[in-house]
């Protein structure tokens, strides 16, 4: 089994978040900051601007085809939502510069699964009438960060985990525990702490597999739990799992989704998935 110190060191050596994000975060924590200053920070990164605008116009954010500038995006979606979109894009960028290190999976497929989980999470949140569903998209997209770090840093050991997953027909997260001593959830939480991601996101990363935080209900965690399983079953990308684990039965009770939720929403979910994948993964 790999010593946990090695994993901790891999996380320490991993890059910090880009300056644009930390500048934005600092500006937004200052109550005197005005919208024009925030816009000027974001507009320094034109590739992100294009993607933010495409995402802002997606119907999962509720303002289809109306937003044409960062200024408008902030007005309609709010500071937090735009900040989360930028954070999502920047974290994907950090990992995508390491695509070549991913020998065991197809990076494009991995991100497709992550984006699908984000979209389905947001979709469930909106449909069950959650008041603050802003954090769901980013939480869904980032739920598997720890797995990505393990795949990049320890490809040889991860082959062993994939082998155990396939041969023993156990969830991949259990195979990771057998090989690494910890699962991607714990590794992902450590990376989230290094990057000082909001607690709601690190809660999801650590607990998405179970659907609960210990025995406590947490709507974000419950939703991403179902969205992750759904994205895997629908084969919207792939995060490496061949076999798909059972949803926690108590999560259904927590979410009170209608019994025909998936069959009645599949066309919209599929459209959103295809549209947003191409927006985020282009260039």
């Amino acid at each position: 089994m790999l010593p946990i110190e090695n994993i901790v060191n891999s996380i320490k050596e991993f890059p910090t978040l880009p300056t644009i994000f930390t500048t934005l975060q600092k500006a937004m924590s200052n109550p005197d900051t005005n919208i024009d200053y925030v816009v000027s920070i974001i507009e320094k990164d034109q590739s992100s601007v294009t993607k933010i605008l495409k995402l802002s116009n997606s119907s999962i954010f509720g303002f289809r085809s109306r937003i044409t500038s960062v200024h408008q995006a902030i007005l309609y979606l709010g500071f937090e939502e735009v900040k989360n979109l930028l954070l999502t894009l920047k974290i994907i960028e950090i990992f995508r510069t390491r695509d070549e290190a991913l020998k065991l999976i197809t990076p494009q497929d991995f991100w497709r699964h992550s984006i699908a989980t984000g979209i389905i999470s947001r979709f469930i949140g909106m449909n069950i009438g959650m008041k603050s569903s802003e954090i769901l998209f980013i939480s869904g997209v980032l739920h598997n960060l720890g797995r990505l770090l393990l795949l990049i840093s320890y490809p040889d050991e991860y082959i062993e985990a994939l082998k155990k997953h396939r041969e023993e027909k156990i969830p991949l997260i259990d195979a990771e525990r057998k090989v690494f001593g910890v699962s991607n959830a714990v590794v992902g939480e450590m990376l989230a702490l290094k990057w000082k991601l909001p607690i709601q996101i690190s809660d999801v990363i650590k607990n998405y597999f179970f659907g609960f935080i210990g025995d406590k209900i947490n709507l974000n965690v419950a939703i991403v739990h179902i969205a992750d399983i759904t994205a895997s079953l629908f084969e919207f990308g792939s995060a490496g799992s061949v076999y798909i684990h059972k949803p926690n039965p108590d999560v259904w009770t927590t979410l009170s989704m209608p019994n025909n939720f998936f069959s009645s929403n599949i066309d919209r979910i599929k459209d959103e998935y295809e549209e947003n994948c191409s927006a985020i993964l282009s260039l």
Partner: peptide
């Protein structure tokens, strides 16, 4: 691919 069988209506709908 599934390591489980549906036990309620929403799981059946998902499958």
């Amino acid at each position: 691919k599934m390591l489980w069988t549906p036990e309620n209506d929403i799981e059946k709908d998902l499958m």
